[in-house]
Design a binder for these strands. Sequence first.
RNA 1: GGAGAAGUACCCAAGUGGUGAAGGGGCUCCCCUGCUAAGGGAGUAGGUCGGGUAACCGGCGCAAGGGUUCAAAUCCCUUCUUCUCCGCCA
Length: 425
Amino acid sequence: MLDIKLIRSNPEKIKAGAKKRCIDVDALVDDILKIDEERREVTGKVEKMKAEQNAATKKIPQMKKAGEDTTQLMAELKTLSEQIKAADSELGELEEKQKTLLLSLPNMPDDDLLEGGKENNKPIRLYKEQPKFDFEPKNHVDLCENLGMIDYQRGAKLAGAGSWVYRGMGARLEWALLNFFISEHLKDGYELILPPHMLNYECGYVAGQFPKFTEEVYWIQNPTSNDKKFMLPTAETALVNLHRDEVLSLDELPRKYIAYTPCYRREAGSYRSEERGMIRGHQFNKVEMVQYTAPDKSDEAFAELVEKAERLVQQLGLHYRLSKLAAGDCSFSMARTYDIEVWIPSMGIYKEVSSASNARDYQARRGNVKFRGADKKLQFVHTLNASGLATSRVIPAIVEQYQNADGSVTVPEVLRPFMGCDIIK
RNA sequence: GGAGAAGUACCCAAGUGGUGAAGGGGCUCCCCUGCUAAGGGAGUAGGUCGGGUAACCGGCGCAAGGGUUCAAAUCCCUUCUUCUCCGCCA
């Protein structure tokens, strides 16, 4: 959520920010300002009446004590009370309306971001070279099936298209990756969190996924209650809500968390034919990093998160690309995002394994997460997140980039202690 | 799933319709003493919204949201959370 005071004082800036994201919010901003003005006017009216009511109400017990007749005053106050009620409900509607509109404004992109969508994403660097094979390389679907690592058939039997079963060395590779990621993060002093996977609506709202993307998650509706929960689409949704409605002290910052969870996504409308195998599934495993920082420290934290995510991919020895996303490709809540994409030889493209973002105070405003600064004043914290990493894109990259002519796959060195073997065959 | 009890500030806690939400602990500052402990005094309801250049003025606030009333921490309803007991259960 953006600061209404910023919108009030500099609406053109907000409009220009959205334009960079290829979103036109001109009419929306104008509407917000119009309602804001109306809201403030009604607020003044209501508060004046309430002040009058409070003053008069205090007189009644005094008059009663003195034996005076209060019926006339009480009658007058009844009228006033009715007027207040009417004006108050008008005010409530205006506030509600304003909030709804405010929520549909995306975060402001950072000044240095390029305008436009995906096509303007800018590669910052490449790591290693594209692997060359002196044999006909296989794709990860065939490799995984041949090696008994992933069972797509039975995954579909159990849960439909877009679901798979990890088995044998596949399951062990998956688990080794998660262990490797977590142990690296622990070395860097991050606190491990295992959050609930079913979250209440408020969590999605604070993270910035709702109300816009309520249809992209799975909802749990119990037959005997109205209680509704959703399956988290990323652990970020849980982690940025850990300190919702809290005031952190300056010496508690930065807070550095990691969480392992499966991520549950409906992925409605995606093209399965182009993304065979594990590239896009309804459930995939991910270790997520989240930091809460003071505003002046968030750039530093962002650099740290990018570096950490990169380091993991480097340690796995995978060829990847780091890109700075153009404004229009950053997600709704984020002021800036860098993607790390690994090379999938069979597809001939790079696929995201980590997305590092700085939300600045956008999520903190929605979740009311503050800290008390050195000057004792309350301010919103900054929240940042980065995957570290999502396994479902790493495994295809590993099996394809590390495949051998005989169809076996060499295990990256850093994973061997976790796997207990050097080669999958 | 059923029954009951509770939710007031950093903590404990009083408060069953009426002017400023008691009291204690802790914390901060001051005084006395001065090695410590003890004692005395003052402060400790924040936050947010609206108005104002500002000092300041005003609205809201007793888990959350509604309702009754001239007036609600207090009465009524709904929801949430915690605790106790019962049932079911991996």
